[in-house]
Computed example of a mutant assay.
Amino acid sequence: MKYTSYSYPHAGVEVSAFIVDGGVAEYHVMIHAANPRQTYREQMDAVLDAYSALLKNELSGAVAVFKRYFLSDAANQAELLLAATAESSDCALSIIEQPPLDGTKIALWVYLQTNVHTKALSNGLYEVTHGAYRQLWMGGSSNRAANSEYQMRLLLNDYTMQLMEQNCTLAANCLRTWIFVQNVDCNYAGVVKARNEVFVTQNLTEKTHYIASTGIGGRHADPKVLVMLDAFAIEGLNPGQINYLYARTHLNPTYEYGVSFERGTAVDYGDRRQVLISGTASINNRGEVVHTGDVRRQTERMWENVEALLKEAGCGFEDMGHVIVYLRDTADYAVVKEMFDARFPEVPKVITLAPVCRPGWLVEMECMAVKKAGNAAYQPF
């Protein structure tokens, strides 16, 4: 993975690039507002201007396939952002209140590719085609059902129907979900119950497999929305291309403590291996929180767990395209930022305020990685 950084007026940009000759290039971009004293509109404009300049110059020819904005106050900021981006809605879009902890009001993660064809589908999914594969991205799905359980159930049922309309299924094609839960300490139990029950109906069980996922605190601009869903599926894979990651020396199967997601998923193509690492915290292989109350040691154990998952996929930290870090307590930001800057100085990353699904976990991270590989049995990405 090649890492580069750029400076624009009032914005900083971090880019990772995976490039293969004649194939699809992949880019992960993190854009941060650089001046926390500016108004929200000024910071938003700085981020949007930096993104436009990056596409025009450094990443000419790349197209966005998924984009997520992290806001400090969605109720007062999301509408202005949507208005500013309406004419250039170029990919699946997610907007979540997870305040960047550098003191700014907005940050942006964008995943881009080259040599692909893209279009918005009528059912709300965003299609990206390349060779034998068709990606289906979804961002910001929500509803206003009575409670978190009903909202999660409706979200998954609707998403299952969206996939069926595209001749796909949740079990065979969905590789990754992100579930954002308002007041996660109170509402996560309903999310877990609904997900477990819907998954059984879709042949997703401990005897088959689950889906890589992050379930984390996050807020929609509408206070009646308790749960939001982002998702990623691919049509064109055969079962042999998908491998689920366990790292049993460090982690236990999630069903042992009542939840249903995979720790990570590796997908093999003819020219690369992509790895999707779920939200990972300081947990041991008995499902217990490790180093309670010590964010420094929790960060170190979290790294060990992620490294074990990546290693199982034949990858390492040097293959990471981006990292998202979630903190429960703003007071831990200085310590965690210092640790991440020292260990991963070039990897595109953002650290946000987002409580993890279990109160004892002070910090969580997720990442995507990619590594060159060759398998003549599969079509290239």
Score class of each variant (00 low, 15 high):
188 Y>K: 10
155 L>I: 02
311 K>L: 09
271 D>Q: 02
180 F>M: 09
333 Y>A: 07
326 Y>C: 11
165 E>W: 15
7 S>T: 13
89 S>P: 06
215 G>V: 14
115 N>H: 11
322 H>E: 11
86 A>T: 07
153 R>G: 00
69 Y>S: 05
208 T>E: 06
87 E>I: 06
223 P>R: 09
14 E>R: 14
253 P>W: 01
299 T>S: 12
36 P>Y: 09
161 M>G: 15
292 T>L: 15
277 I>V: 15
185 D>S: 10
101 L>M: 06
35 N>C: 00
97 E>R: 02
293 G>I: 06
346 E>V: 11
109 W>N: 11
18 F>A: 00
39 T>S: 15
174 C>F: 02
288 E>P: 02
297 R>E: 14
135 Q>R: 11
346 E>I: 00
263 R>D: 03
10 H>D: 11
271 D>R: 06
176 R>F: 14
354 A>E: 07
210 Y>A: 00
189 A>I: 11
342 A>L: 14
134 R>W: 08
83 A>R: 11
248 R>D: 01
263 R>S: 04
344 F>W: 05
343 R>K: 15
3 Y>E: 04
105 K>H: 10
308 A>W: 04
358 R>W: 10
302 M>S: 07
176 R>N: 15
296 R>L: 15
276 L>W: 11
81 L>Y: 04
124 G>S: 13
119 K>P: 06
96 I>D: 01
12 G>C: 08
122 S>D: 15
129 T>R: 12
371 K>A: 01
276 L>S: 08
277 I>Q: 05
274 Q>T: 12
70 F>W: 09
222 D>N: 13
208 T>C: 05
204 L>H: 00
37 R>H: 05
135 Q>S: 10
240 G>E: 10
46 A>T: 12
47 V>D: 01
352 T>K: 14
265 T>V: 13
316 G>W: 02
45 D>F: 01
79 E>G: 15
197 E>H: 01
20 V>E: 07
65 V>L: 09
51 Y>L: 10
152 M>Q: 04
55 L>C: 14
284 N>V: 07
315 C>V: 00
70 F>C: 12
275 V>S: 06
359 P>K: 14
187 N>F: 05
195 R>I: 03
98 Q>F: 00
136 L>N: 04
368 M>P: 01
108 L>D: 04
373 A>F: 05
